[in-house]
Amino acid sequence: MRVSLFVPCFVDQLTPKVGLATAKVLKRLGHDVEFRSAQTCCGQPSFNSGQWDVAREGAIRALSVFRGADVVVGPSGSCVAMMRNFYPELLKGTPHAAEADDLAARTFEFSEFLVKKLGVTDVGAKFAKKVTYHDGCHAMRELRLKEEPRQLLRAVRGLEFIEADEGETCCGFGGLFSAKFPMISTAMAQVKGGALARTGADYVVSSDPSCLLQIGGWLSREGKPILPLHIAEVLANDA
């Protein structure tokens, strides 16, 4: 299958290894992977801030970027939820509505794509570490993904999986919310980060790099001995 990568803007600039790992896994499974360099940001920061008019401009632009792609796969539940659920809402009643629905149907979150679209759970990865998992809220509640990443992780050789308390609790990122209401966001990070740290795992894994930014940022500041890692990075590891 020809897969068009959708690399979130902050992955592009801050954690490019997540994008590379995503591509590596897809290639290992025998797929053609392309990256359309005209892509930038999905516009979610503006959408979430109520600036729907400018967010709409970003959405219309993204439609043209991914026009003609068979499937679009992104390593972020949040950014995929923007395309899947919120582009159609944003473009409802405009001439772009049909194309937004069409793109929504072709766009997948990475773990969702592997498990639900390709039917793959074992991607041939090895990772001899203790791992816990954080469900990003967008992946869990907008895309209804919960078991898919767990199925993938359980198939990883050597990996010991530990569920954390506060399993369905938000990490407190919420995009610009984390900076507009920093103390509320930090209190939420304490609840979530604390539960993750208590598992004694080596890594907290998630399909959402934005949550990992928040959780990792808090864990690092608090000096907790558990590191953030994207699920694509775990699955890319085959050594």
Binding site: T186, G216, S220
Partner: peptide, 20 residues
Amino acid sequence: AWMKTRDLPKAPAQSFRDQW
């Protein structure tokens, strides 16, 4: 506001698009 309570990862030398 972010930096008061949280760290940011070290910025990589190259972006994804450059490495790709």
